[in-house]
C-alpha cells in the first residue's frame, strides 16, 4: 500500500518521519547497503512532500541518495575517526 500525504497528515510529525523512513530505508538499502541508515537519516531532514515524491520516483530518490552519499563522505573526511583502508 503506497504512502500518501493524507495518511501522513493523520499522524504526528515524528510518526510521519518514521513512516517515511520505513518506506525509504529498503529502497536505499538496495543502492547503498552499508550506508542506508545514515542516508535515510539525512533524507528524513527534508520536507515530507519531497520524501513522498522520492518514494514515487526512483530516479528522484537515486539522485537525492547520490547527493546524500557525497555529503556524507565529505563529512566523514572532515571528522577525524578510525580510518580503515
Amino acid at each position: 500500500q503506497p504512502l500518501t500525504a493524507s495518511m501522513l497528515a493523520a499522524v504526528p510529525p515524528q510518526e510521519q518521519k518514521q513512516m517515511l523512513g520505513e518506506r525509504l530505508f529498503p529502497l536505499i538499502q538496495d543502492m547503498h547497503p552499508s550506508l542506508a541508515g545514515k542516508i535515510t537519516g539525512m533524507l528524513l531532514e527534508m520536507d515530507n512532500s519531497e520524501l513522498l515524491h522520492m518514494l514515487e520516483s526512483t530516479e528522484s530518490l537515486r539522485s537525492k541518495v547520490d547527493e546524500a552519499v557525497a555529503v556524507l563522505k565529505a563529512h566523514q573526511a572532515k571528522v577525524p575517526s578510525t580510518n580503515v583502508g
Binding site: Q14, G21, F25, P26, G41, L44
Partner: peptide
C-alpha cells in the same frame, strides 16, 4: 566545548522509533 558533530547524521533503523527531529539544530 567540543564542536565536532561526529554522530551526524542520525541513523535510521527500521522498527526503531525515529528521533531525528529532536537532533535538528535551528
Amino acid at each position: 566545548s567540543n564542536g565536532t558533530n561526529a554522530s551526524w547524521p542520525p541513523e535510521f533503523c527500521p522498527g526503531v522509533p525515529w528521533k531525528g527531529l529532536q537532533n535538528i539544530d535551528p
